[in-house]
Amino acid sequence: MLEVKNLVVEFSTGNRGEKVHAVSDISFIVNEGETLGVVGESGCGKSTTGRAIMQLVKSTSGDVVFDGVSLAGLSGSELREVRTQMQMIFQDPISSLNPRRSVRDIVAEPLLIWKRGTTEQVYEKVDRTLELVGIDPIRAAESKPHQFSGGQCQRISIARALMLDPRLLICDEPVSALDVSVQAQVLNLLESLKKQFKLTLIFIAHDLAVVKNISDRVAVMYLGRICELAPSDAIYSQPKHPYTKLLIDSIPIPDPTIETRAIETLGEPPSPIDPPTGCRFHPRCPLATDICRSEQPQLTETSLGHLVACHHPLG
C-alpha cells in the first residue's frame, strides 16, 4: 500500500554548509491493514519520516509511493487531494488543536475545507465521530481545546483525522504526552478504530513497550537509519541489532525483584549534524570492529521477515 524508497531528508541548520541528516536513505513497505511501529530515541528521524511520508517536509531525495502513485512528483493541488487519504496525529495533543476555535469547529474543519456535504451532514458526522472517540458532542460545541484534558484532546485529534475517511493513519508519538492510565485508553481506542475503519497505521513512538504492543512489525531507527525491522514479537524475543538490545534493556521494568541489568552504555546518541561513518551506532556499540567504523551495513533479511543492518548481528 505504501512504499518508502531510499528516502533522504536533510535540513540546513542555517550555518553555512552544515546539514542535519534527519533521515538517511531508508526504505520500507507498509502493507494494507497492518500497523507498522517506528521506534527510536529523540533525533533519530522517526518523526521526520512520518512527516516526509505526508510530504509535510520536503525530502531531499527518494520517493514515497502511495497506492501506486509517486508522491514526489505531485503538484500542490494533487498532493492536497492525496493527503486526504492519509492523516496524521501529532504528539502534543493540545498544540495540535487551534486554541482559539471550538472543538466541534476543529473537527468539522476537514469537511469544510473539502466542502463535503451540507452543513447539516457535516455536523451530523462530526457529532457521530466525536461520540465514537468518547467525546461529548454537546460539550465539544461550546468548549475550546484547553478545557479538555490531554487524553481528550488526543481523542479529538483522532476524530479530526477520521473525518475524511483516510486509509492510512500516521500517529506521531500520540501517547507520549499522556499519563499511563490515559495512554492505555487511547491505545485501545486506536486498536478498535483500526478494526472498525480498516485502517493502516504507522505508529511512531520512543517507548518500545507501547510500540510493540500496538504494532505488527516494528522498525527500530537510530540516527536517521533503520537498524532493525521485524515482527514485533521477534524484536523483543530475539533482537539482532545491538542497539535494539540496548533499547530493550534500558526500559525500567516495574518489578523490584528483577535486578537492573548491568548494561554497558557508552555515552549518548551523537548529533545528526555530523553522524559517524560506517555504522552509525558504532561509537556506542560494545561489539564494534573496524568494519563497523568504515563500512555502512545494509539492511538484510536474516530470517523470514526479520531485517537487520549490522555487521555482527546478535543471536
Binding site: 487524553g151 499511563v180 492505555a184 491505545l187 517507548d207 510493540k212 504492543n213 505488527d216 514479537d233 530493550i248
Partner: peptide, 19 residues
C-alpha cells in the same frame, strides 16, 4: 495499564476509565 514488553503484541491493555 502499563504495556508490558513480555506480552504478545495487540494485547488489550487494562484501562482505568475516566480521568
Amino acid at each position: 495499564s502499563i504495556p508490558n514488553l513480555k506480552n504478545p503484541s495487540h494485547t488489550e491493555l487494562t484501562v482505568i476509565p475516566g480521568r
